[in-house]
Design a protein around this nucleic acid. Structure first.
Lengths: 118, 118
DNA sequence: TTCCCATATCGCAATATTACGATAATAGTT
DNA sequence: AACTATTATCGTAATATTGCGATATGGGAA
């Protein structure tokens, strides 16, 4: 088949899966990391930083945009990309559940993890 | 092509992407949520909870195992699955970076997100 | 307008993913 | 040993994903 079943799962689960799937690719993750490193938006030099053709980078950017993880705005002559909060909103619920699970099970490794988060 | 390029990215990025990719499917996400909800390991009734054939569930379980997100142990006569910390260890770095980014940019939505985490 | 630059889209080929039924393998039970 | 229940694997068909080159598109600059 190749088609992902979505019926029988909650909307939250499906939405969340979509965001995580968007993050689940080295190039897209690298893009997110580059956007995080730079204070302001990155304007186009992403192609130079990544080991991929321009058309491929462009496609990955549009997928991140579709998932609500980044925003692209035109400022004068440059197109600028920066992180969008919408996508992260979606996975909030999942990580809340992770936390609950940890609280119940007191897994130290996990707690270390969240300590680092803050 | 269909093949994901990994050369040119750091090992951390590639590892992380693999874990996030494993989570980026409704069925696998639902499995993780079911495992989190139950205090102990879930023993086999996963197939009944999911709208998928037994063979499909089994494959998803093996992919989660491969990603280090779950562990399967044989206890007496039943095979029990529970959450493994290894996978989450891998995405720790990514979320640390998210935090740094937030600290710098003071995005309130994001901060709400991490408040909920604790 | 014409040229140039940056980005997006198209078309394609190769490969991966998803799902299912059928079958195997494994372990406990009778 | 034979039977049963549970989980894994195989074979498969359909579809999705990835990546690239080529081409289009849109906005400044000349």
């Amino acid at each position: 088949m190749g088609i992902t079943k979505t019926i029988g799962f909650t909307k939250e689960t499906n939405d969340m899966a979509e965001v995580l799937k968007a993050l689940g690719h080295p190039a897209r993750l690298a893009i997110m990391q580059l956007l995080m490193k730079s204070n302001s938006c990155i304007c186009g030099d992403l192609v130079e930083e990544l080991p991929l053709a321009q058309s491929t980078v462009s496609k990955h950017l549009s997928e991140l945009k579709k998932a609500g993880l980044i925003k692209g705005t035109i400022t004068g002559k440059n197109l600028c990309y920066c992180i969008d909060e919408v996508g992260f909103e979606k996975i909030k619920y999942f990580f809340q559940n992770v936390t609950k699970h940890l609280d119940k099970n007191k897994t130290t490794l996990f707690q270390m993890f969240f300590e680092n988060i803050k």
